[in-house]
Design a protein around this nucleic acid. Structure first.
Lengths: 139, 139
DNA sequence: ATAGTTGCAAAAGTTTTGCATTGTA
DNA sequence: TACAATGCAAAACTTTTGCAACTAT
């Protein structure tokens, strides 16, 4: 039954996250989670979906990406004004951002540490810490 | 000559940065730099400018903010998709972001340290490191 | 005068919403 | 059948660009 494994994988992800496995969601989940970790924009994912001969609007791609993010399947990373990436790696990690090409990659390993953080102001708690290391050309 | 001090301050900032001191730039610089450090969006700054009875379009506010940023007078901080803040504090520092209210504030002191950073990939150098500590309600 | 800048209207993107349609029990 | 959830067109944003008008030599 190997032919159906990517399908089952995507299906399981959705049902475990409490999301109904609709056709569009399944197809997008298959593209997103069938392989290694990825960083995609809504635009990119929409392009891939169309290339894979599925009919889906960009609006639905946005909505789906946000639903996946709320469900904990994705993490949103904002690097530039008007440009969100969605990261299939939801574990605690940080990013390199190539200012030239706009590419975003995970910082490998777990060596990067943020220390000396002041306590969160009263009535708040730290929801997440985002570290973006911006790289420009020329070593 | 105290009445002209804010004007002279703004003028000096602009000329030192190599920007021609036009009327709009002077007015916006006065709002931005005449007092303590600030975090403003283009929309906010435009609102303040209009409230101060100056005629300026939102597009010019954007252009001016980017020119100021390129000239090193401001630093752009992107916190959410479609929402850039411009920070009048250009020194090396990081931010708390209140997810509830959308407010951005500097992390006080210089205690926060990022360590364990891998070397930058070949052909690149680290242009900047942004740390955003996201806060949500409830302590 | 004139070469280079500026500032804004209009255009281009990105993201969100309202509602007809679809799918499920 | 009813009920809730989905998916998309259209709307609402934010941001950028092209060019007429201006400015400082």
């Amino acid at each position: 039954m190997n032919t159906h494994r990517p399908f089952k994988q995507a299906l399981d992800r959705l049902t475990q996250a409490g999301l109904r496995p609709t056709r569009q969601r399944l197809a997008l989940a298959k593209i997103l989670f069938d392989g290694e970790d990825r960083h995609v924009t809504a635009e990119q994912l929409h392009g891939e979906a169309v290339a894979a001969c599925m009919t889906v609007s960009l609006a639905t791609v946005y909505n789906t990406l946000h639903q996946f993010t709320e469900a904990g399947l994705l993490r949103e990373v904002v690097v530039e004004a008007g440009r969100s990436y969605f990261d299939t790696n939801t574990s605690d990690h940080h990013h390199f951002f190539y200012e030239g090409s706009g590419r975003l990659i995970d910082i490998p390993g777990h060596h990067l540490v943020v220390s000396g953080l002041p306590t969160a102001p009263d009535g708040t708690r730290v929801a997440r810490i985002d570290v973006i290391v911006r790289l420009s050309d020329q070593g």
